[in-house]
Design a protein around this nucleic acid. Structure first.
Lengths: 209, 209, 209, 209
DNA sequence: AATGAATGAGGTTTCATTCAT
DNA sequence: TATGAATGAAACCTCATTCAT
């Protein structure tokens, strides 16, 4: 019997597909092209995934699990909120520089309309929103964060800034926008960006400095 | 000879197209459908715009001019930075609730890759980035903003938050995410959101309170 | 504006499609090939018919209306049952020799399974079954047909023989079978076939001879 | 080494394939599906049959041999023509109720066009046509059948009626047509149908009654 | 000899764009 | 100048067949 696609081949398909989906989105992506670039036949892709959307979902899930793993890593030996946020920011920068395609693919999700959009949002955002809220609530109860700050709201602001950081490193449009705001030499400024963001967040939360 | 398209008809095309582009993006939009909904022929659309992307650009430009008008409105009788930011936030909320389609269309831009993405970014982001930077520089020179805050960086953070607010009101995915962070009754919380954001920004900038 | 497909072109499409469907059936038929043979684009076929099945249905309807017109023609100045049957047989032979493709297409219908088959059967068979039953009932009441003959049953036998005649002229398999039973010179035997069938039917019905 | 397919497995393949071919025809049938349902690999089917058509042919041959066995059974202790016909009719009804799939598969043959159709027709129809012709010739020479009846022609009519009976029990379209002519309670009328058909044939042949 | 995973040609359908009127 | 019908390239997906094990 012909050998099954090796694990490596399967990963290649995913990688290629993630790239293609990242560049063109679900509808724009071309399965035949993905097959060609992955050096497999179209047919075999349809053996593994029953249609294009399913391949997309699979790629997305893989990406999200990467993303979540990074997230968990960043918060695992959680100390004070400042350190944690600092870790999260570093992780975001590192991840999005290294996994542009995954960030891009995730970004495509945000263009979906209707019920599907809600489903995806719930699937993707629930974990981190909970994490951030708890982080802030805890800091608040410890008096490290100003009392009139709503944890949910601040978690939202925080994730907004983090998300935009992801996109700024991963997506072409956002990246150019990043340069417009930050200057052409933005690539060399990761540390600076991080510091400024931490500073801004600390003050915004009125954390003890 | 057939009469030229009236101004009204031209606006209708734009309105319909903006809706279609907002829902489906550049590639997903259907020109024939836009023509039908606008009660004009496809042919005439191609007389006014040489291809789909040009129609998209035209719609986008119109939307951006709306957006900029709102922006200018918000900063025209500029007082202190806090008031201005507060105005800008209010304007963002109002605008995105009222012009979902325009926000959505703008959001589609962010999915573009390559050189085109850069062009669009420059066209769109330059004005507001300059505005925000100046705003902050001025406040800084007046001692209203902490000295170690980089105006460009902060302008970036500020626009990120504003942009996410736009999307949170306009796009389905972001809207659901908004609810996840803020609670189901998010619709009734506009004032609250604004207040919290102002508070956060003020502190973040270490403005005199 | 580009001219609409002329009536002639539309008929060509139908003719070509009827031929293709007659040869290959609904699933086997190739729309691109139909378009090419009709000297029109695929697109325009999909403007007129929303999918392949609809084109098939349209062709079938046209064929059935031809068939029914012939049927009505044959029974319009209805005299005695013998003459009418004789006419019907002649009509069947003439029609199926002239409109092979329509007969073949109709034949494909008989391969359908499930609910769809029932729908088609009701649409197609109801008229003629009623006609034949009435014809026989009338003859029976006039004493021209033996009293123990059930009109419905005989109508069934009659239509069976007529249908097989249609197929024997129109469909390749049935045509060859026809030759096996009737001899290679079957083409020259139309009159003879008809006479024998009339004779057989008359006796079968025990009509006055 | 893997064991050869058991006789039972081979029969299962045939059974499953006959069902699939009966439902979908040669082109519509799915070999992979047949393999799965038969609990064998596709590969082994291609070891036994070099392509789909050959499997079809094999199934058909098997079905025809069943059909012919039934036919031979019906005519073996041949008495007078009436009894024989009566037997044949009964056999047709019984067989087609019991072996729908085989009847259906046979029916698909009748859709074939071109040279292939002729081949199949010769393979399938020669035996029975000869049998029927002889049957009638013999009866004619014994004075049991009217002198002006052509045995070949009558054999044709007879087989037509028999064939339609087969299809009426086996195929969905023909079955519904059957009901339209005979009433909804057609299932309970087998005996009646047979009697009427015998009656009709006897008279049609002007047999001594 | 059997397995069953992989192959890839082929067909339906969509829709941006053209162009005759 | 507007019309809108026609065009035809392009892409998803299926499934008969192959072939490495």
């Amino acid at each position: 019997m012909q050998k099954k696609l090796t694990e490596e081949q399967q990963q290649t398909i995913m990688d290629v597909a993630t790239k293609e989906f990242g560049e063109k989105g679900l509808n724009g992506a071309n399965i035949n092209y993905i097959a060609k670039c992955s050096n497999v036949s179209v047919g075999v892709i349809y053996k593994y995934y029953s249609n294009k959307e399913e391949l997309f979902s699979a790629c997305l899930s893989r990406s999200l699990s990467h993303l979540n793993k990074t997230l968990q890593e960043a918060v695992k030996d959680v100390g004070d909120i400042e350190t944690t946020m600092s870790y999260l920011i570093s992780a975001a920068i590192t991840f999005s520089k290294k996994h542009k395609n995954e960030i891009r693919m995730y970004h495509w999700i945000t263009t979906i309309s209707g019920e599907k959009a809600k489903e995806y949002a719930r699937e993707i955002e629930t974990v981190s929103s909970k994490l951030y809220k708890e982080l802030i609530s805890k800091a608040k109860s410890e008096g490290l964060v100003h009392g009139d700050m709503d944890p949910g709201v601040f978690a939202f602001f925080f994730d907004n800034l983090l998300m935009m950081l992801h996109f700024s490193y991963g997506c072409d449009y956002y990246n150019e926008r990043f340069r417009i705001y930050m200057g052409e030499d933005v690539e060399d400024k990761d540390e600076y960006v991080k510091e400024q963001l931490v500073l801004f967040l600390k003050r915004g939360l009125k954390m003890k400095m």
